[in-house]
């Protein structure tokens, strides 16, 4: 299958001498829904900046649908849409002007541009606001405006840098649905996010970068399979007068909360039965963190050569 994005040996050293990317290799297949994860300062936005020619790379190469962004920039850029992490439109313009101008920069004629502006502003719930000055939009609306702007030339590859940051739950869910539909109609999507359940539910493949290096690049399914332990939080009915005995995988967090670590293949119901034999009544139970979150923390911590289990 053709690659939507091919990055090889990508390096970036900023003018202050800081090396943000230390040689990244990454391929994203056509049609993929791809998660690019990493802690703050990992280099995600730097990589996206280079792909979208807003950051000069120090070394390496980037191709979008086999078109090199340096030698074949016109075709490469026409196939790419980017939603940056920071707002970067004029606050004195209106949503309509922003998307229409963006269409113009891609050489799209006015008739087509007007139709698409209506389509995407409507899809993103901004049609009513189309003639308001951008500074009067809420944070979530501004972010959706950047999505509409990135789609106006109908790119084959859409990269979103934390599109759901600062967006309320309802809109986040409708954004997920919107992105899934877009992906189903053939648009390749790369997403960065700090909400790991978002990555888990949307993305098929995943790369994790940390400290400018790629620490993981695999399918979501394989990664989750590797998840070898899960921690459950149990709430007891009444404050405990004594703590459970003889159960190495159970720890008391406070007088009415227990944590149970279950290794792969372990049996949670045995633990709960043992607890009730000792007189504890469990009223509710939840995952301490989702599986991806735990893996993510482990992977990133490995990179940091830490020994602890979590970074709480």
């Amino acid at each position: 299958m053709q690659a939507a994005l091919e990055i090889s040996n990508l390096r970036k050293t900023y003018s202050n001498g800081f090396t943000a990317l230390k040689g990244i290799n990454l391929t994203v297949a056509d049609g993929d829904f791809f998660a690019l994860l990493g802690p703050n300062g990992a280099g995600k936005s730097t990589a996206i900046g280079i792909i979208s020619s807003l950051v000069n790379k120090s070394d390496g190469s980037v191709s979008i649908y086999s078109h090199n962004i340096d030698t074949d920039f016109s075709i490469a850029k026409a196939q790419l849409g980017v939603v940056p992490q920071e707002f970067n439109f004029s606050i004195f313009e209106t949503p309509m002007q922003v998307v229409m101008n963006q269409a113009g920069y891609y050489g799209i004629d006015r008739t087509t541009a007007t139709q698409r502006a209506q389509k995407y502003l409507t899809l993103l719930g901004l049609w009513d606001k189309r003639n308001n000055q951008n500074r009067m939009l809420s944070g979530g609306m501004k972010r959706r405006l950047m999505i509409a702007r990135a789609l106006i030339h109908e790119p084959r590859l859409l990269i979103l840098d934390e599109p759901t940051a600062g967006v309320d739950i309802e809109i986040r869910h409708s954004m997920w649905e919107f992105l899934s539909d877009l992906n189903n109609t053939g648009t390749t999507i790369i997403l960065t996010t700090h909400y790991l359940e978002e990555a888990e539910s949307l993305c098929r493949n995943i790369a994790i970068i940390d400290g400018g290096e790629l620490v993981e690049n695999t399918s979501m399914r394989d990664l989750l399979k590797r998840s070898n332990r899960e921690i459950f939080v149990l709430d007891t009915e009444t404050p405990m007068k004594y703590y459970p005995e003889g159960m190495s995988n159970v720890t008391a967090k406070d007088e009415s909360t227990l944590e149970v670590e279950i290794l792969k293949g372990g049996n949670l119901s045995e633990v709960i039965m043992a607890l009730s034999k000792q007189g504890f009544t469990i009223t509710s139970m939840r995952n301490k963190s989702n599986r991806l979150e735990q893996l993510f923390i482990d992977l990133v911590n490995d990179g940091h050569k830490n020994t602890g289990d979590s970074r709480e």
Partner: peptide
């Protein structure tokens, strides 16, 4: 940073 709108385009 609205200049970026043109810089990302062809």
């Amino acid at each position: 940073r609205s200049i970026e709108e043109i810089l990302v385009s062809p």
